[in-house]
Simulated scan of single mutants.
Amino acid sequence: MAHRFKNLEIWKLSRLFCSSIYELTSTFPDSEKFGLTNQLRRASVSIASNIAEGSSRKSNKDFNRFLEIAVGSMYEIETQLLIASDLGFIHQKELDIFLGKLESIVKMTSKFKVTLSK
């Protein structure tokens, strides 16, 4: 049962979140180009990509597996944002905004996973 990923709210939000990660990391020091900048960007691209790829799978069980991978990338991003904050690349207010957006996407994805299991 294929889903139309472009219609999924979690995909739309994760795509917007990815763009905001790119904007945020553009302010990181050049020395982080191959460090946190690259890691954050790759993980944020992975979220929307895994939702899209999973939606093409024939079974909800397979789709669920890709959603699990997407959630893993979300937690990876959370850790990397906290490290970026520890290093002074992100101010606390900005960190709170990003973590809030990320938490919303995690919750929505978790709820969606429950509906797929039914």
Rank of each mutant, 00 (worst) to 15 (best):
A2D: 14
D86H: 00
S14Q: 11
L67V: 06
G35A: 15
I51F: 04
Y22M: 06
E32C: 05
S117A: 15
K61E: 13
N50E: 09
L82C: 09
D30C: 09
A70E: 00
N38R: 15
F28N: 08
K33A: 12
I21R: 01
I10M: 10
F63E: 01
N64W: 07
A52Y: 04
M74T: 01
D96C: 01
K93S: 12
K58D: 08
G100F: 09
A52R: 04
S14G: 12
S59F: 02
K113T: 00
E9D: 14
I90W: 04
L81M: 10
F89G: 03
K33N: 07
L102G: 04
N64Y: 14
L24M: 07
I10T: 04
E68F: 09
E78G: 06
M108K: 12
H91T: 10
S19T: 11
L8S: 08
K101Q: 14
Y75L: 10
F5D: 02
L24N: 03
A70Y: 00
S46M: 03
E78A: 05
S117N: 14
E103F: 12
R57H: 02
M108P: 01
N7Q: 15
K12I: 11
A52P: 08
A2L: 14
V71Y: 03
I77S: 02
L36H: 05
L116T: 11
K107S: 13
L36W: 06
T37E: 05
K118L: 13
A2M: 13
E68A: 10
E68K: 10
N7M: 14
V71A: 11
S31P: 01
Q80A: 06
A52M: 12
R42D: 06
F63R: 08
V114G: 00
S19R: 12
T115V: 06
P29W: 09
Y75D: 13
F5I: 09
S56D: 11
G100E: 13
K61H: 10
G72R: 02
S31F: 11
I10D: 02
E68V: 07
K6D: 15
P29N: 07
M74V: 05
R57W: 08
R42P: 01
G72E: 08
E32H: 01
V71L: 12
F5L: 09
Q39T: 13
S104T: 14
P29R: 05
C18S: 12
Y75E: 12
K6H: 11
L82T: 08
K61R: 13
A2H: 15
E78I: 08
D96K: 15
N7A: 15
V45G: 07
I10C: 09
I21M: 05
G88R: 06
A2Y: 13
S14K: 07
K93H: 11
S31A: 14
D96R: 14
K107L: 13
I21F: 02
G54L: 00
S20R: 15
D96V: 07
S59M: 05
F89T: 03
S14M: 03
F34K: 07
F17V: 00
D86Y: 05
N60V: 11
N60T: 13
L24P: 00
Q92M: 10
Q39P: 12
